[in-house]
Structure formats: structure tokens, C-alpha cells
């Protein structure tokens, strides 16, 4: 048992150490992702309390949060310097794609909100 806890502590330590090395812009994106996912969770909890009556409103609220989180993750993947797959992609282009995709997403959501 002490071995497991020490393993876990080691794991958390090295994780936080490895994470501390990530560039600031990626950290900002991470915070954004965490924030949107938390918003989605709050909405789901609220739905559990109050009920899902205007179902399209609930759906668009939750999917908006999850959608932005997913898109932010995509952006994070693309602007990550360590990722060898996207060496050719300039971060400006990645951000433009991100904005475009978000625009489409929220246009749809406004339409769907009803």
C-alpha cells in the first residue's frame, strides 16, 4: 500500500512537473477547455435538477460548450510545437480555422436555440 501511494505521489509530481514545462499559450487554451467543460457540467447538473423541457435549449447549451472545448483542443493540437504532424501549419492559420469553425458552430447554435 505505501508503495502505491508513493507511486501515485511520484506520478502526480512528475505530471505537474511535465505540465509546468508547457508554454503559456497552451496553458491558456487548457484553462479555456477546462472552463467550457465545467460550464457544460453545470448545465447538465442544472438539467438534472430542473428538467430538460426546452430540449433544444439544453442541447444547444451543452453542445455549444462541448463544441468549443473540442475546437479548442483541436487548436491546441495544432499550435503545439512538440507535435511533429503540424510543423507546416502556421499558428495564424490554425487560429483562423478555429475562428471559422467556431463561427459556424455558433451560427448553428443560435439557429437551434429556438
Amino acid at each position: 500500500m505505501p508503495r502505491a501511494t508513493s507511486d501515485a505521489r511520484l506520478l502526480i509530481q512528475s505530471l505537474s512537473k511535465a505540465y509546468a514545462a508547457t508554454p503559456t499559450n497552451l496553458k491558456i487554451i487548457d484553462m479555456y477547455v477546462v472552463f467550457t467543460v465545467a460550464t457544460a457540467l453545470i448545465q447538465v447538473a442544472y438539467m438534472g435538477l430542473v428538467g430538460s423541457f426546452p430540449f433544444n435549449s439544453f442541447l444547444s447549451g451543452v453542445l455549444s460548450c462541448i463544441g468549443t472545448a473540442v475546437l479548442a483542443v483541436c487548436l491546441r493540437i495544432q499550435v503545439n510545437k512538440d507535435n511533429k504532424e503540424f510543423k507546416d501549419l502556421p499558428p495564424e492559420r490554425a487560429f483562423a480555422d478555429f475562428v471559422l469553425c467556431n463561427l459556424v458552430l455558433h451560427l448553428v447554435i443560435m439557429n437551434f436555440l429556438g
Binding site: 475546437l71 483541436c74 487548436l75 493540437i77 495544432q78 504532424e85 503540424f86 501549419l89 490554425a94 480555422d97 478555429f98 471559422l100 469553425c101 459556424v104
Partner: peptide
């Protein structure tokens, strides 16, 4: 390509 543009 892994481009978000094409994903949209």
C-alpha cells in the same frame, strides 16, 4: 491534412 477548415 488535419485541418480544421476541412473539418468545418
Amino acid at each position: 491534412t488535419g485541418s480544421l477548415f476541412y473539418a468545418t
